[in-house]
Write a protein that binds this DNA or RNA. Structure first.
Lengths: 151, 151
DNA sequence: CAAAGATAGTTAGGCAACCTAACTACCCCG
DNA sequence: CGGGGTAGTTAGGTTGCCTAACTATCTTTG
């Protein structure tokens, strides 16, 4: 608790300094594990997001995932080419936008990834003792908040 | 606690599924904030690592930071060009390796970044309520462990 | 109701951080 | 002193991200 003597600002600063390298390193590993025959962590995240909001549009999804529209457009193109999601013609009468939905094979790929236990992050989590995992579970809310995740 | 009914494996799996998107999104933001006139989060992390182990070599640093040697080599080159660190001639008699040390201006840049409070992560942390920050503080150890950080 | 402006999505061009393979230069051991 | 290992770099490619600029389609409004 020595840090609190310096006031909340120093406290936050120290926490940020501790979190930054850990987060950078973890995400490096996370992005690295592109299973040759499965979904990358990013793909899985995007498919999950689409599954959660069937019929979402590219722009809306970009905003949810906090990327630019062109970036999301490219991801969608890739995922569509892989057959993991489909574009439905306009849900409204607006001919500019499509509704994105996960395809049957996308859902299958997602389930397969979830069933398989050879994932880097899962392996790391499994290696921790239960108290450490509980601490992470408690931190999940705040982390999501920092990430700016909306329902 | 419903998840625990499915056993520890499902538990870990659910935690991983929750953490993955949050971590990916946070790191996206983190990597984005390249302050035009200061250190990027990556640069700050690397300089700190070098400062913590004066005289470290490129390979050793690569291993510590969990990147390939060429990747680290390139970072070092960039940081050296920016004047933030220096290579000392061999600390031993081994002419293959150099000892890396942070320069005066590197240390100054690091201090300046720490003093400035306009950092993305710090701002996000400051916006959380104290309990959430405490949860993150508790999670810092486990996160560092996942990241494979060594002393 | 047509022109002007706003919005959905794409294309084009670039950058940063990563990787593997292959190379140079050096060390050390038998 | 020759051969195998190690430190570091070079070369070449991938991924994920960005901004600017464009097309096509609404929507507003004078």
């Amino acid at each position: 608790m020595t840090t609190t003597l310096l006031g909340p600002a120093a406290d936050v600063s120290a926490l940020a300094d501790g979190l930054r390298p850990a987060l950078l390193r973890i995400s490096r590993q996370l992005r690295r594990e592109a299973q040759p025959l499965g979904l990358s962590p990013l793909d899985a995240t995007l498919l999950t997001a689409v599954a959660k909001r069937e019929g979402v549009g590219v722009s809306e999804l970009a905003e949810l995932e906090q990327t630019s529209r062109p970036t999301m457009s490219a991801h969608i193109k890739r995922l569509e080419a892989a057959g993991w999601l489909k574009r439905l013609p306009p849900p409204s009468n607006d001919k500019r936008r499509f509704g994105l939905v996960i395809s049957a094979s996308g859902r299958k790929a997602l389930d397969a990834v979830r069933r398989r236990r050879n994932d880097w992050l899962e392996a790391r989590l499994a290696a921790l003792d239960p108290a450490a995992r509980e601490a992470l579970r408690q931190a999940l809310g705040p982390l999501s908040q920092i990430a700016g995740e909306r329902a």
